[in-house]
């Protein structure tokens, strides 16, 4: 029991550490699920307020899955498409002139990027969130499984499904 005394969510330092660690990826998760940016920011705030109010009941190790459950339930429209446009990190508006070639297609880098984005927006929410949590937030499958309360095997499957979906959309129009 002593370890929880020191490391209680009701301790401001622990609460703050959890916030700095989890708030940004949690906000992104909501965007992947189809929430608008402002709404996602609000849900993150409300979720942390609830965590604080229930800090006696939630040990720090369970805070992550608790927050994702609360936030996921607060934004219920699981079949929504994505509202927020994602951006490419480098050379966002510069046309590189680069060509991407694989045995399955050949196209301009910019065209490929556009298609990929459109395909990501059309993914079912439960594949899109897992895929982008891994690609953008660099969460491992283990971390995603812990947050969503499902097995690592389930995450592997959803990632595979997402990749297949994206490939079929990108190759289809060629």
């Amino acid at each position: 029991m002593e370890s929880t005394e020191k490391n209680n969510v009701c301790e401001e330092r622990t609460f703050q550490r959890l916030f700095k660690q989890l708030a940004a990826p949690l906000r992104n998760f909501l965007i992947y699920r189809g929430s608008e940016t402002e709404q996602a920011n609000d849900i993150v705030q409300e979720s942390f307020v609830k965590l604080w109010e229930n800090c006696q009941k939630v040990v720090p190790e369970k805070a992550k899955s608790y927050l994702y459950t609360l936030a996921g339930n607060a934004f219920k429209n699981e079949l929504a498409h994505m509202h927020v446009k994602l951006k490419y990190a480098s050379s966002a508006h510069v046309s590189s002139g680069k060509t991407i070639e694989t045995p399955e297609f050949k196209m301009e880098e910019n065209e490929f990027k556009e298609r990929l984005e459109a395909a990501i927006e059309e993914l079912p929410a439960t594949q899109r969130d897992v895929f982008l949590m891994n690609r953008i937030d660099k969460m491992t499958y283990g971390e995603i499984a812990e947050a969503l309360g499902v097995s690592v095997k389930a995450i592997e499957k959803r990632m595979g499904k997402a990749l297949k979906h994206l490939r079929s959309k990108i190759v289809e129009f060629k």
Binding site: Q16, F19, K20, A23, A24, R27, N28, I31, T37, N41, V44, Q45, V84, L86, K87, Y88, A89, S90, I100, T102, P103, E104, F105, F112, K113, L116, E117, I120, F131, L132, R135, I136, L163, L166, R167, I170, V171
Partner: peptide
């Protein structure tokens, strides 16, 4: 094809989030 998808998806970014302000 999968390799290109994985790489380019990894370069995407969400709108900025100011953790300190939010806290």
């Amino acid at each position: 094809t999968y390799e290109a998808i994985a790489q380019y998806a990894g370069e995407l970014e969400t709108p900025a989030y100011n953790t300190d302000e939010a806290y």
